[in-house]
Structure formats: C-alpha cells, structure tokens
Design a protein around this nucleic acid. Structure first.
Length: 814
RNA sequence: GCCGCGGUGGCGGAAUGGUAGACGCUGCGGACUCAAAAUCCGUUUCCUUCACCGGAGUGAGGGUUCAAGUCCCUCCCGCGGCACCA
C-alpha cells in the first residue's frame, strides 16, 4: 500500500513559506540570466475561481517553473481586469458601490490563486481599477487625442440593449449578437469616441508574418482586417445629355481589369451623392422610398447573401465608362455597402456573381472581357445575350481594345493607369469605438469648453477620478452625466461653462497595455519606463483563450504600435509567441454551466485531492494547445494515485540500484525537458509515470530519488518540496536546477527490434541498438516465424534501420 | 462559397516515414477481506480459435515507398474564422 499524504497540510505550509520568503518575487533584471516574460491573460474578478482559471494559470506554471530551474530569470505576473459590467450589475443588485464589490472579489480571488501554489511574480501586479493604473490609461488617451489617433466620430454604432451601451464591431458576434450579453445588436446613429485602428491596418497585417503565432490566429486577424487590393476609378455622371463636370462617382474594385465589361454602376443607399439636390430628378420619389426602406431593414437582413437582390435605377442619370466613353445606367441597391470601399461599385455582370444576378433580374447588358485559360464548359459563354454562369477567375482579356490579349493580372494596373484611376487598398476593419454609456470604467479624460470644443484633461489633473455620487442604473444615458461632483470639479478646474465628458472607456482599453505596467508597476512618472520595457519586453509567451483572437489580441497590438510611434513603447509588437488553450468541459462533455449542473468547483477538488493533483491532471489531459477536454473524476483519481506512489518511492530506497533505473531516470529527464518547452505536458507526465512504475518495483537510490524529485518539481511543487525537505535538504527545491541528463545513459542497452518480411511485421528480436546488420540478420533468421517465410536462398534484399526496423524482402511463399 | 485546423480503441490521448494504440481512465477476471472500500496482480482494438497460429484495422477511395496514422491526389465528416466586402 502506498503512503498517503495530507495534501492540504503540505500545500498550505509551503505556500506560506514561499510567500514569506518571497521565493518567486522578481526585482532587478539580472543581466547574467536570460529573461523570459511569461504572460497569462489577467482575469476578471468575478468573485470565484473556476476550473478554467486553473487550466489557464496552473498549467503554464509548469513551464514557468521549468524555465526558472533551467536558469532563466522568469517573470510571471498576475493582476486583475477589474472594470466592466458584471461589477456594475452586481452592485445594482446589491445596492453597493462597484468598487466595494470588486475589491472584495479581488481579495477573495487572491486567496484562491494562492492555493494554486503558482510561481506568480506577485510583486509585479496591477489592477485596472487602481487610480494609479488608470491615470496612465487616461494619459495615453490624451496623447492619442492630441495626435489624432483618438477622435470624436459620427456614424452608425452598435447598440447593445442588454448592456445599455455602444459596443465595438469586434464585440458583435457573427450572428449579430453581443459578445457579452447575447442580445441582438441594434444600429444607432450617434457621436462616438473612436480610435484610428484602421490607420494601422497594413502594419497589423504585415507584422503578423514575423510572429511566432499559430497560423490560424494570424489568418483570423488577416481576415478580420480584410485587406483587399484593388483600384479606385472615377466615373463621370450625366444628367440627360448634359455632362456634369464636377460630379463623379468613385468606385472601388478589385478587378480594374474588367473595366471594359462594366455595364452599370451601383451605389449604396447611403451614398452621399444621393444628398445632392440637383440629382433629385426622374423617379426620385421611388428612390427615396427605397432608401427609406433599406434604412428600416436590420443589419442581419441586409447582409443576407441568399436573399433576392433589390434596387432602383436612377432615371435620367447615366455614368460614363472611362474605358469606352459609353453611357451606362446607375442604380442604387442595398447589396452595395456604404461602409466598405467607396460605397459604390462598377458592375461587371459577366465576371462577378452578384452583378450577374442583379443584371439578370434587371435585364442588363453583359460583356465578356476575360477568357478563362482553364478548360471549362461552354455554359460560361453568352447565349442569346445571356450567360448561364459567370467567370470570376483570371484569364486573358478580350473586348477590351488595346488591352486584348493581356493577362488579367497584368491588366489591373495598366487599365487603372490608363483611365486615371489609383491602385488602392480597402479594408473590412473599422475604427475602434471605445466610448461606453456605463459607469464602472475609466472616465474618458476630456472636458468641453463653453463652445463645445473637446480638450484633454492635463496630466496634473490625472487620474481624472471616477465620481462616486452617481446613480448608475442603466437608462441608456451615460451615468456620469448625473454626477454633480464631476460637473463641479470640471468647472472648478477649467472655469464656468466647461462640462465633462461623461462616457467611460471600453474595458478592452484597460487590457491593451497591462503587460507594460506589470514590469514597472510602481512607476509614478510614466506608464512604464523604457528601461523596464527594454529589460523585460516583449512578452515571450502569451497564454490565453481563443475568444480574444480578433478582440484583445488585435486591440493590444494596435495600442502597442500607437505607443511605439509616440516613443512610449520600446517595441512595435507586444507578444512574440502565442498559445491558445482549449476549454475544460463538464463531465458530460458539455460546456460547464450552472443550468446544466455540470460545473466542477476547483476549491472542492483541491480539498479532495490537493492542488498538485488538480494541476497535474489538467496537464495530463492532452496537449495544452487547442483542444477542449471533458473533466473526468476517474482521471483525476489516477493522478492522485500517481502522486501517492511518488510519496511511496521514499520507502523503496536501496543502496545500489539497477542500471535499468538509472537509465530510466535519464530518459525521463530528457523527455520531460523536451516536452515541456513544446507545451506537451501530457507526455511529460506520462514519462514520469513510466519511471515511477519502474522504480517502485526495483527500488532506487537516494540520489536518483533527488534527481527525480527535481524533475517532478515544476509539476508538483508542494509534494516535491515536502519530500525534498524530508530528505534532509534545507533549501527550497525550487531554487535547484533542473537535472541534466547523460546522453549515454538516456538510451537502452538492449531494444526490441521489429522484423518485417516483405513489409509485414512477422516477429521481434532483442538486440543492442547499434547492432550490425549481420548480427540482426542472424538473430532474425534464428526465429522460426521469420526463417519459415524466407526460402533457403535467404532474403533478396535487406533493409535495416538501426534501432527502428529490419525489413527482409523475399520471394512470396519461399 | 473562401481560409485555417482536425478525424486513431468504450473514453482522454501516444506514435523523428520504421513493432499503431505509450500513459491514464473505464470495463472484465483474480488476490486480500466475514463483507465492502482502499490496495495489489492480470487483462482490455476488432474478427477467428480451447490455445498457438492467423486475418483485419488510424473517416472513404486511389497513389508514392522496402515500409504510410504520418507524404501526394480526390472525396466525406467535424470544429473555428470570414462571407452580398465589390
């Protein structure tokens, strides 16, 4: 029977000891050691740690501890992303201040985090709600405001009726609902504080190439930014026969090569040209009705590609195709989006699917200008003036005058140049809307003079404190508007008639720079000194959840670049490497949720089996990157058994151990080290299990036990510390180095080699890993199962890969 | 539709082109026990067989190779991102 250990007592003891002696604190950057910045996304202090937090923080801790033991100076900070709606909603419910709720949650969660026994660098912490933190959030905003990166914009915004505030495009899910509340988003027209992330679109795409990130994350960001290369081309307009010299419609197209096939123009219903009074001719009433109708439609409806295309022709107005001088009709249709490109397109029905459908419905002319070079059915070609299908691929130009015969790729620039167009890019990405009509956030540090002009709050008045005399029951109005003290403060400092901005910032602003603050968290002269940034940044590994791919990860990359341009950040990219972890599911394989009753409470698990076991179980489930794993009560029991067997090893001490144990140890050290840096914690744990299975049978020496404990230390920090001290050591095992394996001992002296006949496994033989071909052949032929399949003449061919396989080729039936 | 990732036992998963299923869980059999739990031992891909021996097998079908879960082609399914984006 294995010794049982009292995990609760051991763990508490060592947590207190580590805390008291500051084992994991990191102060000055020590030049003789290589730095490593390991970052995990800071949690929202919801009031209770869930199993996902354990997966997020305890498993990367294995990597952190391993790197510490291999001589790196590792910083592994933790903090709190504490502004946001849940605090406000909880405060409303309980009728208390959100700060009270938040602060007590942080206190409680700190205790829970302690119980993980992680090597957190607690002296490098930060919290977004700390005025000493948000004064810098505000200061950066004022810098961005002065540089025009932050601006007061007007336009259509996403309104979440559940959150009672505006949210950013990134926070609207594909199905048109709010990322937070799940409510269906409404479009509203109102002024908004914006950040000019679109100015950074090219750099946000191009700089991805150099990052050591999983391809799917990079690709998702590229698609989100959605860069299209194309051209802007101007079309002159005519009313009746009269050319309007100063009226042009600029279209954006990715296919300027098809210009000669453009047989009509389409404008979005919101196109500014429709406001020009002199164009209100012909069927204007019909046009107006169409515009009004499309305004009524909700976003979902408008973006539905499957619905039938609608549109109205602008009677009496024509455009001139600049390639041919031909007059072509102009339509408005809601399949053209005002928010993309120029809000106007040239339609080429022969080579664009949507234009093709529209042209079919309105019986518009089609001109083929690109001949595909692949073999395709002739249904592509016009019959009786109409296509059956359109070709949207590349090819050779025709019906395009001087460009006939040119490759469509080459023609793009040539045609654009010829008609006085400009090659240009357009993006899907929109500017980041950061104003929120809610209370519990960073007040936007702007005041308005009596004329209504916005001014940044000067540095000496920062932090621009969040007032407390506010009724923050959500009404859709910004709660700060109700604060008398904020109004008074503004007038007192700036003068009579001055008014404060009353919106707060999106909490994604807070998390866009916290990793910079961590490394210099007590700096009261800058957001984070360049010295500290040069010491510690960029973040070497950033562990986090997949949901942040096009939100936090994109925002913080932008923020970093904006700071970099202002000389406030030392690097243009914040995170070198990114690892997205998966989800821990309930035992039933579903996402954990209270309503399903499948929630696993980590505190309960820790009480039951101990923190080391919970951590190792999470590590053992599978590769850290990517997958979702169901929680399994039997599975965690297996890990508890494993640790009990480790405890039991101390009873299996022998004076002289077998060479097998020594070799097994060195193989294990090698395997664990290799796996941890690849985040394959599961196979590292498995290797240690194999060692224990072996060692408990034949016994091990104290020096082997010590080496094994040091190998296990990153995975089971409490148990190994306990056994380390029990062995008589007086210093922490976590100050020890990770064992170095001996290459000569990390291999077996004898291996089982598979023997194939004609590529099929027919037996195995025991040989030395570096046995000669003659030796293995002799051994193989000594086996009847092998020899019987090979004729007297012996094999006609022998393939021998030492340590891997012996494959004998012989005539069938020999 | 486009882009990315994946598909291996009852389950989580393992396998530099070289013995598929390591390790763990579960199940089954046994030991210990009055009994149970715990623990220990054995076993656990499927088919055939008393057993040995065989045969099949990594989503499907082809191909390359002495050798394919792994490489190539075609397809199916699942997950994620984007999608009337010109």
């Amino acid at each position: 029977m294995h010794k049982k250990f009292d995990a609760g007592a051991i763990e508490k003891k060592w947590q207190e000891e580590w805390c008291a002696s500051g084992t994991y604190d990191v102060d000055e950057r020590r030049g003789e050691k290589e730095k490593e910045y390991v970052l995990v996304e800071w949690p929202y202090p919801s009031g209770n740690l869930h199993i996902g937090h354990w997966y997020a923080f305890a498993v990367p801790d294995i990597y952190v501890r391993y790197r510490r033991m291999t001589g790196k100076q590792v910083i592994y900070p933790m903090g709190f992303d504490a502004f946001g709606l849940p605090a406000e909603n909880a405060a409303i419910k309980r009728n208390i201040n959100p700060r009270t709720w938040t602060e007590s949650n942080i206190e409680f969660m700190k205790g829970q985090l302690e119980s993980m026994g992680n090597a957190f660098t607690w002296n490098k912490t930060a919290s977004s709600t700390d005025p000493e933190y948000y004064r810098w959030t505000q200061w950066m905003f004022t810098q961005f405001f002065e540089k025009g990166i932050a601006y007061r914009g007007k336009g259509v915004v996403n309104w979440c009726p559940g959150c009672n505030t505006v949210i950013a495009n990134e926070q609207v899910l594909t199905d048109g609902t709010c990322e937070r509340s799940g409510d269906l988003i409404e479009k509203r027209e109102m002024p908004q504080w914006m950040l000019r992330i679109t100015d950074y679109a090219d750099r946000l795409i191009d700089d991805l190439d150099a990052l050591d990130w999983p391809e799917h994350i990079k690709e998702a960001q590229r698609q989100w930014i959605g860069r299209s290369r194309g051209a802007e081309i101007d079309f002159k307009l005519k009313i009746g026969k009269e050319e309007l010299n100063n009226e042009v419609v600029t279209v954006f197209t990715t296919r300027p090569d098809t210009l000669c096939g453009a047989t009509f123009l389409v404008l979005a219903p919101e196109h500014p040209l429709l406001n020009a009074n002199h164009l209100h001719i012909g069927n204007w009433a019909e046009v107006e009705a169409y515009v009004a109708a499309s305004k009524q439609k909700d976003e979902q409806d408008r973006l539905d590609a499957t619905k039938e295309k609608t549109g109205v022709k602008l009677e009496g107005i024509t455009a001139i195709n600049p390639s041919s001088g031909e007059k072509i009709p102009v339509f408005i249709a809601d399949y053209v989006l005002s928010t993309y490109g120029t809000g106007a397109i040239m339609a080429v029905p022969a080579h664009d699917e949507r234009d093709f459908v529209f042209a079919g419905k309105f019986n518009l002319r089609e001109i083929e200008v690109v001949e595909p070079q692949e073999k395709l059915g002739d249904e592509l070609h016009i019959r009786e003036g109409r296509h059956r299908k359109c070709w949207s691929g590349p090819g050779i130009l025709k019906n395009s005058g001087e460009f006939d015969g040119m490759d469509s790729e080459v023609a793009k620039e040539a045609i654009t140049k010829k008609v006085g167009g400009r090659m240009s890019n357009t993006y899907r990405l929109r500017d980041w809307s950061i104003g929120r009509q809610r209370y519990w956030g960073v007040p936007i540090p702007i005041v308005y003079d009596p004329e209504g002009k916005a001014h940044p709050v000067p540095k000496e008045h920062l932090p621009w404190l969040l007032p407390e005399d506010v009724d923050f029951t959500p009404t859709g109005e910004a709660p700060l508007a109700k604060s008398a003290t904020l109004r008074e403060r503004t007038e007192e400092i700036f003068g009579a008639g001055w008014t404060p901005e009353v919106e707060t910032m999106d909490t994604f602003v807070d998390s866009s720079w916290y990793f910079l603050r961590y490394v210099d968290n007590h700096d009261d002269t800058s957001l984070s000194s360049l010295t500290a940034q040069k010491d510690w940044l960029p973040v070497d590994i950033y562990f986090g959840g997949a949901e942040h791919t096009t939100m936090h990860l994109l925002y913080s990359r932008f923020w970093q670049k904006a700071l970099f341009d202002l000389g406030l950040a030392a690097h243009p990219e914040p995170y070198k490497k990114r690892i997205n972890r998966g989800l821990i599911l309930g035992p039933d394989g579903n996402k954990m949720s209270k309503s399903k009753g499948n929630v696993i409470d980590p505190d309960e698990q820790v009480k039951l089996v101990g923190a080391d076991t919970v951590k190792m179980y999470l590590a053992f489930m599978g590769p850290y990157e990517g997958n979702n794993y169901p929680w399994d009560m039997g599975g965690i029991a297996g890990l508890r058994r494993f640790l009990e067997r480790v405890y039991g090893l101390t009873e299996n001490i022998v004076g002289v151990e077998s060479e097998g144990v020594t070799r097994q140890l060195h193989k294990t050290i090698k395997k664990v080290g290799e796996d941890v840096v690849q985040f394959k914690f599961n196979t590292a744990v498995s290797a240690m299990m194999i060692f224990v299975n072996y060692a408990e049978k034949v016994g091990l020496t104290t020096s082997t036990l010590d080496l094994f404990l040091r190998t296990l230390a990153p995975f089971a920090p409490h148990l190994t510390e306990e056994l380390w001290h029990e062995r008589g050591h007086t210093t922490s095992i976590h100050e020890e180095s990770f064992p170095v394996y001996d290459e000569a001992l990390a291999v077996d002296t004898e291996i089982t080699l598979g023997v194939q006949v004609n590529g099929k496994l027919r037996g195995t033989i025991s040989v030395s890993p570096d046995a000669s071909e003659a030796e293995v052949l002799k051994a193989a032929l000594a086996e009847t199962s092998i020899a019987g399949r090979i004729g007297a003449g012996g094999p006609t061919k022998v393939i021998y890969v030492p340590g891997r396989i012996l494959n004998l080729i012989a005539p069938e039936g020999g």
